[in-house]
Amino acid sequence: MKLWIRDRGLLLVNAALFLISFVGMVISGVLNYNEEQRAHGEPGVTLLGFFGTGDFLEATFENWESEFLQMGMYVVLTAYLFQRGSSESKLPDKHEPQDDDPRTAATERDTPWPVRHGGLLLRLYEHSLSIMFFVLFAASFLLHAVGGSEAYNEEQASHGAPGVTVFGYMATSRFWFESFQNWQSEFMVIAVMIGASVYLRERGSVESKPIAMAHRDTDT
């Protein structure tokens, strides 16, 4: 059991941090939502009822969409672009194992089955990581619009103004402000990580080059 946990520690700890943060978001979110409802003379909701509100959907998925977009773009861009000296980049003048054509690889029993099968399955599998992120981004983007439109229509109704459809909400400046304010922060962090890893180090981390390695060199 200890060996199993050790081999999956990075995933398990990050999953636990996500769950803790998610629970914290939900609890604080329902308290904030009910405070706003009372301030407008409207009834509050239970903890479970909060999951069906536009506020919950909007707050959750406008953040998730930016994370999935960030990672999907990062996966694709690192396949084609370079930053010499960064631990986040391949070397521009060296063939990397990630560029090998799997069709010429010797297959074994534990080789991923799409590689052994070939054809269209292999074609999709070659890009399955970015496909997953972009599918999750598209789903989160749509759910952000659904939740945002519900929250927007509640506000409109409280002011006696007409509501909008989901697609109508996607045409508002509010929807795009919510999206871009998250997207810009995600790409900023990635740019900082790429540039900082050229000159700064973290001993023991796979995200860092060896401490004594020259800034221009890249360990891949």
Score class of each variant (00 low, 15 high):
residue 206 V to N: 13
residue 39 A to T: 13
residue 179 S to H: 10
residue 88 E to L: 14
residue 219 D to W: 15
residue 198 V to K: 05
residue 168 G to I: 00
residue 124 L to W: 13
residue 214 A to N: 08
residue 27 I to L: 15
residue 198 V to F: 04
residue 13 V to H: 07
residue 215 H to W: 15
residue 66 S to A: 10
residue 15 A to E: 10
residue 72 G to C: 06
residue 152 Y to S: 00
residue 76 V to I: 15
residue 142 L to T: 07
residue 151 A to K: 01
residue 184 Q to H: 10
residue 13 V to S: 07
residue 65 E to W: 02
residue 181 Q to A: 13
residue 203 R to V: 10
residue 144 H to L: 04
residue 201 R to N: 05
residue 206 V to M: 15
residue 114 P to A: 03
residue 160 G to T: 05
residue 65 E to Y: 06
residue 125 Y to I: 06
residue 48 L to R: 08
residue 129 L to T: 08
residue 212 A to F: 10
residue 83 Q to N: 14
residue 100 D to T: 05
residue 160 G to E: 06
residue 184 Q to Y: 12
residue 213 M to Y: 03
residue 42 E to L: 12
residue 59 A to Q: 05
residue 59 A to M: 07
residue 138 A to S: 14
residue 83 Q to H: 11
residue 100 D to Q: 10
residue 162 P to I: 05
residue 198 V to Q: 07
residue 183 W to S: 01
residue 212 A to Y: 08
residue 62 E to M: 13
residue 61 F to I: 01
residue 43 P to G: 09
residue 153 N to G: 05
residue 17 L to K: 11
residue 186 E to V: 10
residue 129 L to A: 09
residue 210 P to L: 03
residue 22 F to R: 09
residue 1 M to C: 14
residue 77 L to G: 05
residue 133 F to S: 00
residue 147 G to T: 01
residue 3 L to Q: 13
residue 138 A to N: 03
residue 62 E to P: 01
residue 27 I to V: 13
residue 201 R to L: 04
residue 143 L to F: 07
residue 8 R to A: 12
residue 167 F to K: 04
residue 54 G to T: 01
residue 92 P to A: 14
residue 24 G to L: 09
residue 195 G to P: 01
residue 41 G to A: 13
residue 171 A to W: 08
residue 131 I to Q: 02
residue 218 T to S: 10
residue 166 V to C: 02
residue 189 V to G: 09
residue 134 F to V: 05
